[in-house]
Amino acid sequence: MALDFHDIRFPPRISRGCRGGPQRKTIVVALGNGKEQRNQQWADSRRRFNAGYGVRNIDDIHAIIDFFEERRGRLTAFRWKDWSDFKSCPPGTAVTAIDQQIGTGTGAQAVFQLVKTYGGAHNLYERIITKPVSGTVKVALNGVELANDFSVDHATGLVTLAVAPGADVVVTAGFEFDVPARFDTDILEVEVDAALLGNIPDIPVVEVLQ
C-alpha cells in the first residue's frame, strides 16, 4: 500500500462541499412467502463521495486538476477529510483523551490500534482508524491523560506506549483522522465558459480499505 499512497490531503476547502458517506453491501433475497433473507457481504463500510459539489471557481478547478494529475487518476491513494465524521467525538465537540476505548492493559502489550466505535446497545461497529492527523492524538490510562509517554504511527494508526499498561488498565484515545481514499475515475470532465466560470460535475472519490 505504501507505494500506492501519497501522504497528502485532498484540498479540504473543496471536500467540505462534497456529497457522500458510508456505503455497505447487503444482499436481500425475497422469498416466496414474502419474507426476506438478508446477508451482509462487507464486514466494513466503505465511504464514497462526489467532490464535484465542492468546486466553486476556476481556482478550485485548477487545484483539482493539479491534484488529480499528480495522483495519476485512480492509481494513487491520498488523505481525504470527511467533514461529517473526522473526529473520535462528534464533529462539533472537542477531542478528549477518553473519547474511544482502544484496548485494555495486559502488563505486556504496549501497542494499540486506534479505533472508533459506532452505535449503542444493539450491535456496535468498530472502525479501524489508520490515518490519524498529526498532532491531534491524545491517550489516557484509566482516564488520566498521558503527556509524552507514547508515539503514534500516522500511516497505520498504531499507538505505542512507552510502558505497557498493567492488567485491566483501560486505554483510551481521542484524535482527528482522515480517510484513505482515491479517485474513482480516470477522466475529469471540466466545464469552463467564456467568463472563466466553470465546474467539474462528477469527481467520484472512494475509500481505500486497508
Score class of each variant (00 low, 15 high):
L3C: 08
R9N: 15
P11W: 05
P11C: 09
R13F: 12
I14P: 03
G17R: 05
C18Q: 08
K25D: 13
G34L: 07
Q37V: 13
Q41K: 00
W42V: 00
W42A: 02
A43F: 08
D44C: 01
F49T: 00
A51F: 01
R56G: 00
N57D: 09
H62E: 05
F68K: 02
L75K: 11
L75N: 12
T76E: 10
T76F: 15
F78E: 13
W80K: 03
K87F: 11
P90I: 10
T93Y: 15
V95D: 10
G107H: 04
A108C: 07
Q109P: 04
K116A: 08
K116Q: 11
Y118A: 10
G119I: 10
N123F: 06
R127D: 09
I129L: 02
V137G: 07
V139M: 13
L146G: 04
N148L: 02
F150G: 02
F150S: 02
D153W: 15
T156I: 15
T160R: 14
G166H: 04
D168N: 11
V169S: 12
F177A: 05
D178T: 15
A181T: 14
A181P: 06
D186F: 11
L188V: 10
A194D: 03
L196Q: 11
L197H: 01
I203L: 01
V208L: 06
L209H: 07
